[in-house]
Design a protein around this nucleic acid. Structure first.
Length: 425
RNA sequence: GGAGAGAUGGCCGAGUAGGUCGAAGGCGGUCGCCUGCUAAGCGAUUAUACGGACUAAAAUCCGUAUCGAGGGUUCGAAUCCCUCUCUCUCCGCCA
C-alpha cells in the first residue's frame, strides 16, 4: 500500500509507475475522491465542533436549572446533518481504500523498464548448462523410472498437480529442507521459524495477497477467514504486524520452512508435467526486516544467500532482474534466480528475491523507532526463496542423471541422505 | 462441543444511577533540577490517525476521531441497548 499523501503529492510518479508496469488503477478517481473527502471532513468537523461546544453549554444550563430546550432542538438538527455527512464520508473512504489497495508499489529506479518477462535483464550467470553424452530425461520420467516420484497415485488420492514422493525421493526432499535451513541459520545468521501453514485474512492482506489475488489462494471452507499459505512469507512477515520495533532489533533475518499451497488460477496448461507447478510444494523462505537506508544492500545479500545454495549443490544458474512489466504487485525490485533445467532446455525460476521497501510494512503496520522517543517509521521488508524445494529436487534429478538412469547425490547432501551417494533402481 | 469471566493509553489499573474523561493512580520512558559518584529525591512532560493554519520542509498551533469491532438510543456515551470478534478459566474430546 502506498502512502495516501505520497499519491496525492506525486500523482505523476504513480502514473508513470502504473504505465511502466503495464497495469491500471483508477488514479484520477482516487485523486477526485481524496479531495472530496477532505472537503467533507472540513465541513463535518466544523459541525462536530459546534455540537461539542453546545453540548457543554447544555450541561451547564441544566446544572444551573436554566431552560435548554431550544438549544437541544437545534443540536438535534445538527446531529442529523453530521450523521448524513459521516455516512457520505464513509462511502468515500471505502472507495479510496479499495483503489489504494489496487495500486502496486513504485518500482525502484534501478529496475529496467519493459513490457514483460522478455525484458528481464540477466545480471550474472554461474556455471554452464549441463552437457550430456546421452539423451537426458525429464525429471518426471527419472522419478517414475526410479520409483521415487508417483504422479499417478497422487492424482488418485488428490488430483492433478500433486506428487507423492517415495523412498529416496522423499528423503531427498527432506534432505534439501534440512540442508538449506542449516546453511541459512548457521552460516548466514537467519533465525529459524516454523510458522502455521494457515493464516487469517488480516495476514493475507498484510503481505498483499489480498484482496487482489484471492482466487490464487486456497481458502478453508469451514472458516471464511482462514487461508492455506501460498508461501511462508505470509506468516513470517506478519509476525511483526501491528508492532513497533526498536532500532536495535534491526535488521531481522528469518528463515522458515513451510508447505506452500497455490490454486494457480489462470495457469492451466502451463508446466503440467512434473514438479515445477504444483498446488502443494515445499519451500525454505528467507525474510528480512530492515531500515530504509540498508534495504537495497540487504536485497543483494539475501539474493547471494539464496545463490549460495545452488552453488553448493553444483547447479548451474543465472540471476535476472525483473523488468517493470514482470515485477510483482508489492515489490519495488526483484531478482529471480533461475536454475538450468535440461528438460526445458532453459533456465527456470527457482527463487524470487524482492525488496518491498515500506509497501508491505505500511499495509501490515510494522514500524520501528529510529531514535529513542522518535516517531515510529515503517520498516522495509524483503524476502526470497532459499530455495523452492520441489524445483530443486527436479533440478538435481535432471542435472545429476547418469546414462544408466541413476542419479548422483550432490556431495553436500550426502550427510543428509544417510551417506547415500547415488539413487539407483 | 458445554459452562463462566473479561476486553480501557507502552504496561498495570480506576472509572457503570450518561455531561469539562483522551480518560484518576501507579509503573515505565523523556527532559530538567539536586546530591562529590551511584541509589534515592524533586519538578515537568509522556498516544495515534486524519483534517486545517503556518512552513521550503519541519517544529508549533487549532480542530476531529479513537476506551476490542460495528450499529443503535441521546443535544451529549468508556459508561445504556443490540450484533460480532477475540482472549482467559473450568469441563468434555483429541495428535
Amino acid at each position: 500500500m502506498l502512502d495516501v499523501k505520497f499519491v496525492r503529492q506525486n500523482p505523476d510518479i504513480v502514473r508513470r509507475s502504473l504505465q511502466n508496469r503495464r497495469t491500471e488503477a483508477d488514479l484520477d478517481r482516487f485523486l477526485k475522491l481524496d479531495e472530496e473527502r477532505r472537503n467533507l471532513l472540513f465541513e463535518v468537523e466544523k459541525l462536530k465542533n459546534l455540537r461539542n461546544s453546545e453540548s457543554e453549554e447544555i450541561a451547564r444550563k441544566k446544572k444551573a436549572k436554566e431552560p435548554a430546550d431550544e438549544l437541544i432542538a437545534r443540536m438535534k438538527e445538527v446531529s442529523q446533518q453530521i450523521k448524513e455527512m459521516d455516512e457520505k464520508i464513509n462511502e468515500v473512504e471505502k472507495s479510496l481504500e479499495e483503489i489504494l489497495l489496487t495500486i502496486p508499489n513504485i518500482p525502484d529506479d534501478s529496475v529496467p523498464i519493459g513490457e514483460s518477462d522478455a525484458d528481464n535483464v540477466e545480471v550474472r550467470r554461474w556455471g554452464e548448462p549441463t552437457k550430456f553424452d546421452f539423451e537426458p530425461k525429464p525429471h518426471w520420467d527419472i522419478g517414475e523410472d526410479l520409483d521415487i516420484l508417483d504422479f499417478e497415485r497422487a492424482r488418485k488420492i488428490t488430483g492433478s498437480r500433486f506428487t507423492v514422493y517415495k523412498g529416496a525421493g522423499a528423503r531427498l526432499e527432506r534432505a534439501l529442507i534440512n540442508f538449506m535451513l542449516d546453511l541459512h541459520t548457521q552460516k548466514h545468521n537467519y533465525k529459524e521459524i516454523f510458522p502455521p501453514f494457515i493464516v487469517n485474512r488480516d495476514s493475507m492482506t498484510g503481505t498483499g495477497q489480498l484482496p487482489k489475488f484471492e482466487e490464487d489462494a486456497f481458502k478453508l471452507a469451514n472458516n471464511n477467514d482462514y487461508f492455506l499459505i501460498p508461501t511462508a512469507e505470509v506468516p513470517v512477515t506478519n509476525l511483526h504486524r501491528d508492532e513497533i520495533l526498536s532500532k536495535d532489533d534491526l535488521p531481522i533475518y528469518y528463515v522458515a520452512y513451510s508447505g506452500c499451497f497455490r490454486a494457480e488460477a489462470g495457469s492451466a496448461g502451463r508446466d503440467t508435467r512434473g514438479l515445477i507447478r504444483q498446488h502443494q510444494f515445499n519451500k525454505v523462505e528467507l525474510v528480512k526486516f530492515t531500515d530504509a537506508q540498508s534495504s537495497m544492500q540487504e536485497l543483494e545479500k539475501l539474493t547471494a544467500d539464496a545463490e549460495e545454495v545452488l552453488e553448493l549443490l553444483g547447479l548451474p544458474y543465472r540471476v535476472v532482474v525483473l523488468s517493470t512489466g514482470d515485477l510483482g504487485f508489492s515489490s519495488a525490485k526483484t531478482y529471480d534466480i533461475e536454475v538450468w533445467m535440461p528438460s526445458y532446455n532453459r533456465y527456470v525460476e527457482i527463487s524470487s528475491c524482492s525488496n518491498f521497501k515500506d509497501f508491505q510494512a505500511r499495509r501490515a503496520r510494522i514500524q520501528y523507532r529510529p531514535e529513542k522517543g522518535a516517531k515510529p517509521v515503517y520498516v522495509h521488508t524483503l524476502n526470497g526463496s532459499g530455495l523452492a524445494i520441489g524445483r530443486t529436487t527436479a533440478a538435481i534429478l535432471e542435472n545429476y542423471q547418469q546414462s544408466d538412469g541413476s542419479v548422483i547425490i550432490p556431495e553436500v547432501l550426502r550427510e543428509y541422505m544417510g551417506g547415500l551417494n547415488k539413487i539407483d533402481i
